[in-house]
C-alpha cells in the first residue's frame, strides 16, 4: 500500500552565507527525505547537525540554497500550505502580553476560523492541554511546562494534518514528558502525521515509527525504528508464573538446540514507570509513604 508522501525533500541544501556572500556554514547537504502520511517521524542528531534547519526549511522560515522541499504537495515557501500544518517550536515564540484564551483566539483568527468553531476549539484545547486554571493569566507568568502546553495548543488550533515538533520533550519533567508522548501517540492514532526532531534518544525510541539520523548536515541512517533497533540474532522471551523447574527445563531445551543462553532473570521495569506509579500513588493517597511495603513493580 503505497503511502502518500506528506513531506518530500529533493537534494535540499542550505548554506549560510555572510554579508559578502562567502560561505560560512554548510548546514544541510543534499538531503533526500520522505515522510509518509500517518506516521511519527523522528529527526535525530547531535547539536548542529541540521535538524532545526530542516524543520525551518520545511516551514518556509528559511529559503533553500539548492534543491526543493515539498510539503503537502506544495512548495515549502508557499504560505497556503500552512493551513494544514501545526508547529511547536522549542522556545515559546508567543506574545507574552496575551493570556491563553487571547492567544488561541488570535491564532484561530489567523486561520480564518469562524467565531463559533473557534470558541469550541479553544475550550477543547484548553482542556486537552490542561491549562484551565491559568487560562486568564498572561503568558509571561507561565512555567516552562505550561508554556510548552499552550504552544502545543496553538499548534493544534487548526486541527492540522501535519504537525512539526522541535524538541518537544526537552526540558520537561518526567510527567510532562509522558503526557507529551501520550499526546503524540494519540495524534498519530487520529490519523495525523507528526515530524519531531530531538536529541533525547529515549523519547524518540518510545514514540517514533521511522527515524532519520543526521550528522553535519548529511543523512546517515534512515528507517523504521523497530527494524533498526532489532537485534537479529537474539530472541527475547518474557513469561509470567514460571517455576524454577520450568526455568531449568527451558535451559536444557536451549542447550539441546545449541543456542546460547544470554540471560534468564527478572527483568527491570523502567525508572519512568516506577516514578509515575509513585507519583500517581501519592496523589491518590496523600501523606508520607512508608518505605519497604511490597513496592513490587506491577510490570507492563
Amino acid at each position: 500500500m503505497p503511502a502518500e508522501a506528506v513531506i518530500e525533500t529533493r537534494a535540499l541544501s542550505k548554506i549560510y552565507r555572510d554579508f559578502w556572500g562567502r560561505q560560512k556554514v554548510r548546514a544541510l547537504k543534499a538531503l533526500d527525505l520522505e515522510v509518509y502520511k500517518g506516521e511519527i517521524f523522528g529527526l535525530l542528531g547531535p547539536n548542529g547537525s541540521g535538524k532545526t534547519t530542516t524543520i525551518k526549511l520545511l516551514l518556509g522560515l528559511l529559503f533553500p540554497t539548492e534543491g526543493r522541499a515539498l510539503v503537502l504537495g506544495k512548495d515549502a515557501t508557499d504560505v497556503s500550505k500552512n493551513e494544514r500544518i501545526g508547529y511547536l517550536p522549542e522556545e515559546s515564540y508567543l506574545y507574552k502580553f496575551l493570556n491563553a484564551e487571547e492567544t488561541l483566539d488570535f491564532y484561530g483568527r489567523l486561520f480564518d476560523i469562524t467565531p463559533e468553531v473557534r470558541k469550541e476549539r479553544i475550550e477543547k484545547l484548553i482542556k486537552l492541554v490542561k491549562i484551565e486554571r491559568a487560562r486568564k493569566r498572561q503568558l509571561r507568568e507561565y512555567s516552562k511546562g505550561m508554556t510548552r502546553r499552550i504552544g502545543l495548543a496553538q499548534a493544534l488550533i487548526n486541527d492540522p494534518d501535519l504537525i512539526l515538533l522541535d524538541e518537544p520533550t526537552s526540558g520537561l519533567d518526567p510527567i510532562g514528558t509522558r503526557e507529551m508522548k501520550d499526546m503524540i501517540l494519540e495524534l498519530r492514532d487520529q490519523g495525523k502525521t507528526i515530524v519531531m526532531c530531538s536529541h533525547l534518544l529515549a523519547d524518540v525510541q518510545d514514540v517514533c515509527d521511522r527515524i532519520a539520523i543526521l550528522h553535519q548536515g548529511e543523512l546517515k541512517e534512515l528507517g523504521r525504528v523497530d527494524s533498526l533497533l532489532t537485534v537479529e540474532d537474539v530472541t527475547q522471551i518474557r513469561a509470567r508464573n514460571l517455576t524454577d523447574a520450568c526455568q531449568n527445563e527451558l535451559r536444557d531445551v536451549i542447550a539441546r538446540h545449541e543456542g546460547e543462553l544470554l540471560e534468564m532473570a527478572n527483568p527491570t521495569t523502567t525508572l519512568e514507570d516506577l516514578f509515575l506509579s509513585i507519583v500517581s500513588d501519592s496523589e491518590a493517597r496523600p501523606g508520607r509513604r512508608v518505605v519497604g511495603t511490597a513496592a513490587k513493580a506491577d510490570g507492563g
Binding site: G60, L61, S80, P89
Partner: peptide
Amino acid sequence: YTIVTKPV
C-alpha cells in the same frame, strides 16, 4: 515564527 507559520 509562530505567525509566519500560519497561513498569513
